[in-house]
């Protein structure tokens, strides 16, 4: 029971972080057809920006400024990079962001060094919120939960209930028509790209000190975010949410299960001394998202909630 509750709570937080990352990716994808390979790099930038800003001022300013900065970098990238390669097709765009991920990785190494930086949870949030089954539950995790949920609700409100959201949604499906109606579609694209990167940056601000802030964080997070987006169905926000929660909870619970294959499949005659029998579920955790990806794509090629074959 104890394990289940903790796994669910932590899995939900991890899932929400994943969703913050993948929501930006999904928005960008459904609008421009670009799968931004460098998306996780903006997550990393968010964390590093927050670390630097926090060193000068405080965490709350960093919480606001770091995503804005990450979004600004994203807008510059869209304006001066992606828009140029757009004429060469989607593969060129994907390759451009792929190269960008390399560049951002190296630049981060130059500026902040090769080792992890000491980006800590702010003192105001560094206390035990409640005690559950005798274990202390840190307040910062609940803070992440609140930030993520707040962000999601505002995103939903912005997209579904405001005029800006209306234009964005229209530009998703009928960019030419929206352009003819007098809206600046390239500006909309640039803003959406920036907003997506800002969301990734925000995830970095609150995730960077929850996990660890080092130059490898983008490479670790990137593939999982892609899995979320593809499993959820390319271009579907609801699907991305489902997939993010599913993977978050799945991976977090798997880590806490110490049973090995021989314990589970012992009735099939699998012994603990065999190589296959020695593998524990916890060991399997890093492969689970990718296993899920392959399984989902075999059974349902358009993903959980995807409407179109991409």
């Amino acid at each position: 029971m104890e394990t289940i509750v903790f796994s669910l709570l932590n899995g939900m937080i991890y899932g929400l972080l994943l969703f913050m990352l993948s929501s930006g990716l999904t928005l960008i994808f459904s609008m421009m057809g670009i799968l931004n390979f460098a998306h996780a790099s903006f997550y990393m930038l968010g964390a590093y920006f927050a670390y630097t800003i926090m060193g000068v001022t405080n965490f709350w300013l960093a919480l606001f400024l770091a995503p804005v900065l990450a979004g600004g970098v994203g807008m510059l990238v869209e304006r001066w990079g992606l828009r140029r390669v757009h004429v060469n097709g989607h593969v060129a765009e994907l390759l451009f962001t792929f190269g960008l991920a390399y560049l951002i990785d190296e630049v981060v190494r130059i500026i902040w060094g090769r080792n992890a930086v000491n980006y800590k949870v702010p003192e105001a949030l560094d206390f035990t919120l409640f005690t559950l089954y005798g274990s202390n539950y840190p307040a910062y995790r609940i803070f992440i939960l609140f930030v993520a949920v707040f962000m999601l609700v505002s995103l939903w409100y912005l997209l579904k209930r405001t005029r800006i959201g209306l234009i964005i949604q229209a530009a998703l499906t009928h960019p030419h028509m929206v352009g003819h109606l007098g809206h600046n579609v390239p500006l909309v694209f640039m803003s959406v790209f920036g907003a997506g990167c800002a969301l990734a940056g925000l995830a970095g601000v609150i995730g960077g000190n929850y996990f660890i802030t080092d130059p490898a964080m983008a490479v670790q997070m990137g593939p999982i975010v892609f899995v979320v987006v593809v499993v959820g169905g390319l271009g579907s926000l609801e699907g991305a949410f489902l997939a993010a929660m599913l993977i978050g909870i799945l991976q977090t619970s798997a880590v806490s299960i110490n049973a090995s294959f021989s314990d589970i499949f012992g009735f099939l005659g699998l012994t603990a001394s065999s190589e296959l029998g020695r593998i524990t579920v916890a060991q399997l955790a890093p492969t689970l998202p990718f296993l899920l990806l392959v399984l989902v794509l075999i059974a349902r090629p358009r993903g959980l909630m995807g409407e179109r074959e991409v």
Partner: peptide
């Protein structure tokens, strides 16, 4: 399973397969 899709989906599947293989490879020492 991967070639049923082209374009971006194919790229993502290949990425997933590569990650799956390289993480799974660490489990089978023999």
């Amino acid at each position: 399973p991967s070639c049923r899709r082209a374009g971006t989906a194919f790229a993502m599947i290949s990425l997933g397969v590569a990650e799956l293989m390289s993480t799974a490879a660490f489990m089978f020492d023999s």
